[in-house]
Nucleic acid binder design. Structure first.
Length: 495
RNA sequence: GCGCUCGUAGCUCAAUUGGCAGAGCAAGCGACUCUUAAUCGCUAGGUUGUAGGUUCGAUUCCUACCGGGCGCACCA
């Protein structure tokens, strides 16, 4: 597959040389468009022959007929047919036609008309080459059968589609539509929060200590400071510092990084939304989550039309309490069990490698096995054990639990939230418990963040906080099974 | 990290038990002034992922490695 010898690439370079020999620059600086192609039918309206328009885009199909040729030109808005005639373009103009390829970016000008079959078409009077394509894009051929576009051959190798997302996007309008919908979802979430007085902020990606979640971090090094820095695994602790500083409602949308395995629901970097609201507790945040998800779903629905069935969120979501639900599933009092009993229960539930697990981990595994995996409709799970939630406030009336909820749907977590712990004495004890787990070998447990404790000691307002993984939310809304299909450039091994 | 599986032309795919590596599209040349998976004729296009091994002979069987997919583990 030596590219020097590849005859297809060679042919294109020879055409490039021929184009230059004609005195035509193969790579332009700009082109003035009067329309995008989707506006053409409106511009022509019912007329026999419409106004002259200028459009630009990529040639996506070609049908030569000797002294004429038909082609399709695609821009972001859609595609339109072009009609080239030698008697219109002249000998010189038509000479350039022979040197065009599918994939070339061109600008054309000419009047609109309707062909015998009724298709709105540009009769090209002027042609400008904007970028010569030297490498064939893997366009399939399309035909319309009973109004449905059927694509033949094309570009289907998933590896190459991920590696060369630019090519995947270039030949698959539906992939562009999916990522456009994702962007609309993000915009809708920003609007939702902005409308409620939230301030969008940016906090450090490079952190001297990592915290706010349990995960293995990526480790890097700053040369000038000669210090270890970690890529953040969560935004949480910095956002809550900002609430101490007086920003009462803040949010951040950005990438978190977790140095774990890759699979269809995990990419090493992923998009996290976190938002914090002073003077709210977790019951308020449940309302926020319900409304925010409805807004996100509506944005996706509006963007994709009826090509995808976006779930309708019926609120309020059902609530399940962690402890009674798990107790009922097991027929005993979970939190009263000692560690070896929990280990046995986990083993019985089919949980692997239970021997090395800490008590919090065992509790979480049991809940996952018996409850989480069975949840289909969006459901809030409330009031997790304190061991599982080192940053959440104790539950009023039951300090063994915390005021925390997670939202599950189709067996997956969509949101995680709590009434945030704002007692610096309690927080220090929780950090120290984490540090002990860490010393005992739990790589994911956090350490003591003294700066965060200092901030809390100045007085942290009570607040509710929520984290939502936007990749997974979008997967849920569009029923996509692989996270790589919702990330433009997913992490892959090098070629 | 483990298991299964896949890797053949630019793209999508064939190749019987281990027996001459093929097709469609794309490409090149030629014909064609309303085609639309345009059509017709001709031509070219390959280190079968990489490196070894078994064999008279390997796309096919074996080993290792590289990359992907699926599953498991991991991911509070």
């Amino acid at each position: 597959m030596s590219e020097e010898l590849n005859f297809v690439l060679k042919a294109r370079r020879e055409k490039l040389a021929a184009i230059e020999a004609l005195g035509v620059p193969p790579y332009a600086y700009s082109f003035d468009r009067t329309h995008v192609v989707a506006q053409a039918p409106e511009a022509l309206a019912d007329a026999e022959e419409g106004p002259s328009i200028s459009v630009a885009g990529r040639l996506v199909s070609w049908r030569g007929h000797g002294k004429t040729a038909f082609a399709h030109l695609a821009d972001e808005s859609g595609r339109i047919q072009l009609y080239f005639r030698r008697d219109v373009l002249g000998e010189d103009g038509f000479a350039l036609i022979d040197l065009l390829d599918i994939g070339d970016v061109v600008g054309v000008s000419g009047p609109l008309f309707r062909t015998r079959t009724g298709e709105v078409t540009v009769r090209v009077e002027e042609l400008e080459l904007l970028a010569k394509s030297l490498r064939p894009l893997p366009f399939g051929k399309e035909e319309v059968v009973d109004g449905v576009t059927v694509r033949h051959s094309g570009f289907s190798d998933p590896e190459q589609r991920y590696r060369q997302r630019y090519a995947d996007l270039a030949v698959h309008p539906e992939v562009r539509a999916l990522f456009r919908a994702r962007s609309r979802m993000t915009t809708a979430i920003r609007t939702f929060l902005d409308d409620r007085g939230y301030l969008e902020v940016e906090t450090p990606v490079l952190q001297p200590l990592y915290g706010g979640a349990a995960a293995r971090p990526f480790v890097t090094h700053h040369h000038a400071l000669d210090m270890t820095l970690y890529l953040r695994i969560a935004d949480e602790l910095y956002l809550k510092r900002l609430v101490v500083g007086g920003f009462e409602r803040v949010y951040e949308i950005g990438h978190d990084f977790r140095n774990e395995g890759l699979d269809r629901t995990h990419n090493p970097e992923f998009t996290m939304l976190e938002f914090y609201e002073a003077y709210a507790d977790y019951t308020v945040m449940m309302d926020r989550v319900e409304s925010l998800l409805q807004a996100a779903a509506q944005a996706v629905r509006d963007s994709l039309g009826d090509t995808v069935e976006v779930p309708v969120f019926t609120t309020p979501f059902p609530r399940l309490e962690w402890q009674p639900t798990l107790n009922a599933a097991l027929g005993l009092d979970v939190l009263a069990q000692d560690e070896s009993s929990l280990r046995n229960l986990a083993r019985t539930a089919g949980v692997a490698s239970v021997e090395a697990m800490s008590r919090p981990k065992l509790l979480d595994e049991l809940f996952q096995a018996h409850v989480e995996s069975t949840i289909v409709e969006p459901t809030f799970v409330l009031d997790y054990p304190v061991e599982l939630s080192p940053l959440a406030k104790p539950k009023r009336g039951n300090p063994a639990l915390t005021e925390r909820f997670e939202l599950f749907a189709r067996g997956r977590e969509l949101a995680n939230a709590f009434s945030e712990l704002n007692d610096p004495i309690d927080q220090r004890q929780r950090f120290e418990a984490q540090a002990r787990l860490r010393a005992a070998g739990d790589e994911e447990a956090s350490g003591v963040d003294e700066d965060y404790l200092r901030a809390m000691e100045y007085g942290m307002p009570p607040m509710g906080g929520v984290g939502i993984g936007l990749d997974r939310l979008f997967m849920y809304l569009t029923d996509v099974q692989n996270i790589r299909d919702v990330i433009l450039f997913p992490t892959l091994r090098p070629e």
